[in-house]
């Protein structure tokens, strides 16, 4: 079982992806989608990816809602910066964020969140020191940004992935 299905969650995810793409729920497409998903999983197993460890807690919906709200809010903020006359006092810059999270999947999700919210950009991650370099468009208070990233996202992500 584990030899054939090393990632039990990926199989239904791939089958659902296939069905959405084909816009069909017919038996033929379910069988075909399952066959393709099994084939793809065999290919994935050859890469020997790290085991995914997800805890299904209330942290997942809380994080989702928070990220959606932050995306909308930072869209408005960045749009205002672009449209307003360039303020010479606005400063952008880099911040170093020390991270405690070591899970690769957690870091990947953190990267998606940071990039998807306009105004912050993931530049580089140093895995030996666990230090993340983030570029911030509107840098007012460096420590406030670090606290924001750590308290808002990293804590919840560690609840899910570690």
């Amino acid at each position: 079982m584990t030899r054939w299905l090393p990632h039990p969650l990926l199989l239904p995810a791939l089958v659902i992806l296939w069905l959405v793409l084909q816009e069909s729920l017919s038996l033929g497409h379910i069988v075909l989608g399952t066959a393709i998903a099994l084939f793809a999983l065999r290919g994935l197993a050859a890469l020997k990816p790290e085991k995914v460890w997800i805890r299904f807690t209330s942290a997942i919906p809380r994080l989702t809602v928070m990220v959606l709200g932050d995306v909308v809010r930072s869209n408005i903020a960045v749009g205002r910066i672009i449209l307003s006359r360039q303020n010479p006092r606005r400063r952008s810059g880099f911040i170093h964020v020390p991270l405690e999270m070591r899970s690769r999947y957690g870091l990947a999700v953190l990267g998606i969140i940071i990039t998807a919210t306009p105004g912050t950009l993931w530049m580089q991650y140093d895995s030996s020191r666990g230090e993340l370099l983030v570029h911030v468009l509107d840098l007012v208070d460096e420590d406030a940004w670090i606290r924001l990233l750590k308290d808002r996202y990293e804590r919840l992500l560690m609840e899910i992935f570690e």
Partner: peptide, 13 residues
Amino acid sequence: YERMHAPTLGTTV
């Protein structure tokens, strides 16, 4: 580096 923030508006909202 400032310009890199701009296109993410189009890819999100």
